[in-house]
């Protein structure tokens, strides 16, 4: 198949995936509202934590802004998983299997839906952050980096959702996996910087949890400016997760579309 035919296939599947996602307000609205609600409640409720010695900023809002991006990505996992599982349950995937559609085109096309939602989320959270007074320390370029890191994180979590759906074929399993992903967010440096976490086991978990570094990558751009180490770790964790999840999804898709 020629390169242009492949591009055409990716294009039509991507279009459908984006259209389908955006036509479901039940999928888009909570993915925007819930992270903003948590951000708002957290930043007002926990502002006194900034008085702790060693807290990196005097605005808990700036500190908590990063959480919205990762929490938004968790919703990507949910919506990607739900979309794929309903395609399996309805037989739509079987129909696609009967066309000359290439697996890689299907995969890339599905990811377009995830990325579209991720982009809307990232721009919204960034806009709300700036509107309510979070200065982006790394400036306009920093804001662009935040958006791209956030997309990478959405891609990783989105693929996890798609993977669960492809392996199980069930929307319920996707919903069941959602709390597990939330646990990964909660057991990270979400609420306090890692060096201010008092409980030993919790700090150890947060140290090993890649979500901590994703948060800290975004957070560094908001609070401190250009921090090479934090960014490298953030991109490495997000990129590593995306690569692993993509490989797993691709293999699950091969099994699911087991055709000659």
């Amino acid at each position: 198949m020629s390169r242009s035919a492949l591009a055409l296939q990716v294009g039509v599947v991507a279009r459908r995936s984006v259209v389908r996602t955006l036509r479901q307000p039940a999928m888009v609205v909570p993915a925007l509202l819930f992270p903003l609600m948590l951000l708002s409640i957290n930043s007002s409720g926990l502002d006194s934590a900034t008085e702790l010695p060693g807290f990196p900023t005097d605005s808990y809002f700036e500190f908590a802004l990063a959480i919205a991006f990762v929490q938004g990505a968790l919703f990507s996992a949910n919506s990607a998983g739900t979309n794929v599982s309903s395609d399996i349950e309805s037989g739509f995937l079987a129909r696609l299997s009967l066309t000359p559609l290439r697996r890689v085109a299907l995969l890339l096309g599905q990811l377009a839906g995830i990325l579209a939602l991720g982009l809307i989320q990232a721009l919204t959270f960034l806009g709300v952050g700036i509107l309510f007074g979070a200065g982006i320390a790394a400036g306009v370029a920093g804001a662009l980096v935040i958006v791209s890191l956030s997309l990478l994180i959405s891609l990783g979590f989105g693929c996890i959702g798609a993977f669960v759906a492809l392996r199980t074929g069930s929307g319920e399993a996707v919903q069941g996996a959602f709390p597990l992903l939330f646990a990964a967010l909660f057991l990270s440096s979400m609420a306090l910087p890692r060096d201010l976490i008092e409980t030993d086991w919790f700090r150890t978990v947060a140290d090993w949890n890649p979500v901590s570094y994703m948060l800290e990558g975004i957070r560094s751009l908001v609070i401190t400016g250009w921090d090479g180490e934090a960014l490298a770790l953030g991109f490495a964790c997000a990129g590593g997760l995306a690569a692993l999840a993509l490989a797993a999804t691709s293999s699950a898709l091969r099994t699911r579309m087991a055709r000659a």
């Binding site: 296939q9 459908r16 037989g91 079987a94 129909r95 066309t99």
Partner: peptide
């Protein structure tokens, strides 16, 4: 196939567009 394998969120014409493009 048995369950009409359609995407509830797309229109009939959009289904057609997808299918023709894939072929």
């Amino acid at each position: 196939l048995q369950e009409a394998a359609l995407d509830p969120f797309l229109t009939g014409r959009e289904h057609m567009k997808l299918q023709t493009a894939l072929h």
